[in-house]
Computed example of a mutant assay.
Amino acid sequence: MKVSEALASRRSVRGFLDKPVDPNVLRRVLTLAGRAPSGGNLQPWHVAVVTGRPLAALVDAVAARIAAGAAEPAEYAVYPANLPEPYRSRRFAVGEEMYGHLGIPREDRAARLAWFAANYRFFGAPVGLFVHTPRFMGPPQWADLGIWLQSVMLLLREEGLDSCPQEAWAMWPRSVRAHVPIPEEHILYAGMSIGWADPAAPANRTRAERAPIEETTTFLGF
């Protein structure tokens, strides 16, 4: 698979088949992803990969906390407050498209919240991944984490696998730490669902639009 094909076919999958992932494939992907660039070669990513009983225990624990109405202090704000245009409209549009495929109207807040909770079941994926980094790392190193995550997602596509990066997991840091060895001196940056996309899952019909380069890019000297 060409890089262009992997990038064009990559999407945030929110419905997975009950099919295991070969650990040797994951090791190969994560080894290659380690070649992702980072400023000063710091390689600020630390990773935990979870499946089987440990994954089920984590998912069940968070589900119980959600059902009890519990909450935890998030590691960071996923979105800026009072998000301005055009960013607000982009976020709104992809959400409405997904809920449209799911048949959940905007006024059905309970159903939307119930669907959002599927984040914490990894959308049924057989593998969950967490990436964390020391708290003293700054915005440049957080950018490195994004580069690493993109590398992982493209390599997964090369293997025929799909994924969904999930900053939503930053909202349950204590529960994650109770099941995953993430030091307190590290910040939980994101989770990721990994597995085989379920073609019958309605949410997987979502195809987020991208802004044209005329809207985002300036060329000088050409």
Score class of each variant (00 low, 15 high):
14 R>V: 12
139 P>W: 07
209 E>N: 01
117 A>S: 13
8 A>D: 04
183 P>I: 04
162 D>P: 01
103 G>A: 07
214 E>R: 13
189 Y>L: 08
130 F>V: 08
94 V>F: 11
18 D>V: 03
222 F>D: 15
69 G>Q: 14
205 R>P: 05
140 P>K: 02
98 M>Q: 11
82 N>F: 14
214 E>D: 14
59 V>H: 09
146 G>E: 04
221 G>K: 09
86 P>M: 09
219 F>V: 15
87 Y>Q: 14
195 G>N: 01
42 L>I: 11
81 A>P: 02
214 E>W: 02
161 L>V: 08
98 M>K: 08
197 A>Q: 12
122 F>H: 09
215 E>I: 03
215 E>L: 10
214 E>G: 12
203 A>S: 10
120 Y>I: 00
148 W>G: 06
71 A>M: 06
14 R>W: 11
174 R>A: 11
14 R>N: 12
66 I>D: 01
42 L>M: 10
145 L>G: 12
207 R>Y: 00
49 V>N: 12
218 T>P: 03
171 M>Y: 13
189 Y>T: 03
155 L>E: 05
174 R>I: 05
147 I>F: 08
98 M>C: 08
122 F>Y: 13
60 D>V: 00
5 E>H: 11
146 G>R: 07
51 T>V: 06
10 R>S: 11
175 S>Q: 05
63 A>Q: 15
164 C>V: 02
149 L>C: 13
36 A>R: 04
209 E>S: 10
134 P>W: 02
95 G>H: 08
46 H>A: 02
121 R>F: 11
206 T>D: 01
62 V>T: 12
168 A>V: 05
212 P>G: 14
90 R>N: 09
199 P>T: 08
188 L>K: 07
5 E>S: 13
61 A>R: 07
170 A>R: 03
169 W>R: 00
34 G>Q: 09
211 A>S: 10
133 T>P: 02
152 V>A: 09
116 F>N: 13
4 S>T: 15
137 M>C: 15
105 P>H: 13
151 S>P: 05
141 Q>E: 15
173 P>K: 14
25 V>K: 02
213 I>G: 05
70 A>H: 14
172 W>A: 09
148 W>P: 05
8 A>T: 04
162 D>Q: 15
72 E>R: 03
114 A>D: 10
221 G>F: 06
148 W>I: 00
153 M>Q: 13
85 E>C: 11
61 A>L: 04
112 R>M: 09
119 N>I: 08
27 R>I: 04
116 F>K: 09
201 A>H: 13
104 I>Q: 10
83 L>C: 03
129 L>Q: 02
70 A>P: 04
142 W>Y: 15
196 W>L: 01
166 Q>D: 03
139 P>S: 11
126 P>C: 06
187 I>Y: 04
23 P>W: 12
168 A>M: 05
143 A>N: 07
21 V>W: 01
210 R>H: 06
170 A>M: 03
208 A>T: 14
